[in-house]
Nucleic acid binder design. Sequence first.
DNA 1: CAAAGCATGTAAGCAGTTACATGATTGT
DNA 2: ACAATCATGTAACTGCTTACATGCTTTG
Lengths: 197, 197
Amino acid sequence: MSIRHAILGFLSRQPYTGYELKKLFADALSFHWSGNNNQIYGALIDLHGSGAVTIEILQQEKLPARKVYTITDQGREELRAWVLSEPELPVPRVMARTQLAWAECLSPKELGELLVTYRRKLEDQILMYRETLRRKPRGPARSPREELIWRSLDEGAVAYYEGELAWVEGLRDALAALPTAVDGVGGVAGDGTDGGA
Amino acid sequence: MSIRHAILGFLSRQPYTGYELKKLFADALSFHWSGNNNQIYGALIDLHGSGAVTIEILQQEKLPARKVYTITDQGREELRAWVLSEPELPVPRVMARTQLAWAECLSPKELGELLVTYRRKLEDQILMYRETLRRKPRGPARSPREELIWRSLDEGAVAYYEGELAWVEGLRDALAALPTAVDGVGGVAGDGTDGGA
DNA sequence: CAAAGCATGTAAGCAGTTACATGATTGT
DNA sequence: ACAATCATGTAACTGCTTACATGCTTTG
């Protein structure tokens, strides 16, 4: 369970309820968890069981009780140990690229359209990120250093999509530069309904 | 199941046994599946059940029988449909970045070391990729277009890690440029054992 | 003789997903 | 009247992972 540590991270700043954490995950651009109940409530029970957090139950009139979770010293130690642990290399599992790997069964036109669709999605995502970052300033950082890191993480997320976009553009250019004889294979002779093995 | 389509992709080039597919996945740089038995043998049974592949069993003297899987027309159609399907945006879930998000509990020195470790792993990975690509030429492509795409995928994988590397370098530079007063917080006053909420 | 390769498969588990269930309150 | 928000939790599933199990052959 790795969302466990992200939860501890949030709790290291201030106490939260499961419901609030759920929203934090759903809203955050840099934390790519769906923030579903199952994981968060489950992880919180787990964290409580292992003594990393304490629970305070606040009864409310006519609304369900709020269970406010507070990190313990032990929880802080666990968080620290995780942050210090060997960072692992990311595995770029990009489904769209796997699709392209087997694009041989497509006509040039179909392939072109696929690339355009992907490009457009990437552009939209970049715009959305930029817009969200512009108008939803994150909470106050605990230090200029933390502020810097958070900004860097946000920028890095955008940069990732920009990198992917540049790659698609590069591929499109390269494909366009291929000899026309090849372009004609699927574009003239067939409709792309698979030419055979 | 999504490795299902990657398997169909390989089979669209030529028939393979499960064992061979397993090695293909394990060796390929652009397909980030572990190539474990469970998934591959399971997916093959599934593919056979739905009529996407046929099985030919070749008995061997004193070695286990080889089950050679061949893609059917229906399998080709499924592959084609998948390749044409809406490409989905990748989600960059980089654990190392999540660690950095909660690096506030680290001293400047510890943070610096963490970044250096990550940078080194990225550099190693890039070198390893380059080396592997240089000396393990992939099989013959079915067309110049496929050749181009495959090369592009390989280059894209390296470019991804280079982008991540550039991001780390940028962050390091930015941290180094922070006022020294801040640098002193964890470096002088404490040993980084957590300064409190 | 041990290790690696050939070739199949099973078991157990983890981290994540969507969707369901309950029920009051507030906003349109 | 309908939807969204508050707030908890459960169920069922998917995709992927490591590790185990079997047994024979080739290579060092």
